[in-house]
Amino acid sequence: MSDWTDIGALSAIPERGARLVKTAMGCVAVFRTVDDEIFAIDDACPHKGGPLSEGIVHGRSVTCPLHNMVLRLDTGLAQGADEGSVATYPVRVEAGRILLDTERLRRGRVA
């Protein structure tokens, strides 16, 4: 079952930027692309845990600020020769507000 949670306004995230959402399961990075698309993925790079929310956003990808691993925002998969992936979370925009499906993120609380 989905659990859509309002996490803030679309305008609170810079275009081609990201903001963090703290959760019981760790930090989730919420990205806004040049086309105002929104994506949510785990903030930790699969390479050495770099904060992906601080990377440069280009197209539907982000480049990790620590060692330049490139990850797709929509699939969470590493690009090019690199291997690895991060979890992605359903997120959508309604009337200028960002809704994150926190179903998987709250599981820690229930368990």
């Binding site: 996490i7 803030g8 709250r106």
Partner: peptide, 14 residues
């Protein structure tokens, strides 16, 4: 300033 803080903190709720 707000750009340096998390957008939301769901741990408080949890």
């Amino acid at each position: 300033r707000e750009l340096y803080a998390p957008l939301a903190d769901l741990t408080l709720e949890a």
